[in-house]
Simulated scan of single mutants.
Amino acid sequence: MTATRSTRQRDVIARVLGEAEGPLAVVDVLERAQADLPGLGIATVYRTLKLLTEQGQIHPVTLDGETRYERAGGGHHHHFSCTGCGRVFTLHTCPVALPRGTVYPGGFIVEAHEVTLYGKCPACAASA
Rank of each mutant, 00 (worst) to 15 (best):
T90Y: 07
L37D: 02
C124I: 11
T53Y: 13
I109G: 01
P23Q: 03
T48A: 08
R10P: 00
A20R: 00
E111K: 10
Q9L: 05
S81W: 03
A43T: 13
G106N: 03
A126L: 13
L30G: 04
D28N: 12
G18N: 09
V110C: 14
Q34H: 02
F108T: 01
A43I: 09
H76F: 06
R15F: 12
T2Y: 14
V16R: 00
G65L: 12
L40G: 10
R8A: 08
C85L: 09
L17A: 05
T67S: 14
R71W: 04
I42V: 12
L117A: 13
H59V: 08
Q9M: 04
A3M: 09
P60L: 03
G101K: 09
C82L: 10
Q9V: 15
V16P: 04
P99S: 03
I13N: 01
V12E: 12
K50S: 15
L91T: 06
Y46Q: 13
L51P: 00
G22R: 00
V29Q: 00
S81M: 02
V12N: 03
V12S: 05
L24V: 00
D11P: 07
C85R: 10
A14G: 11
V61R: 07
R100A: 15
L17S: 06
A25S: 07
G41S: 07
E21K: 08
P23N: 03
T2F: 15
D64R: 10
G107R: 02
H113Q: 12
A43Y: 11
E31T: 11
T102P: 13
L117S: 15
G107S: 00
P105I: 01
L30S: 08
T93F: 15
D36Q: 08
R8T: 03
E54K: 07
E70T: 01
K50E: 10
V88G: 08
L30I: 01
A25Q: 12
T48W: 01
H78T: 06
V27M: 13
V115S: 09
C85K: 05
E66F: 12
Y104F: 06
G107N: 07
D64P: 01
G75A: 12
R32P: 08
L37S: 01
G65E: 05
P38D: 04
L98P: 02
T2I: 13
A33H: 01
M1T: 13
H78V: 05
E31M: 11
P105H: 03
E114G: 11
G39H: 12
G74L: 15
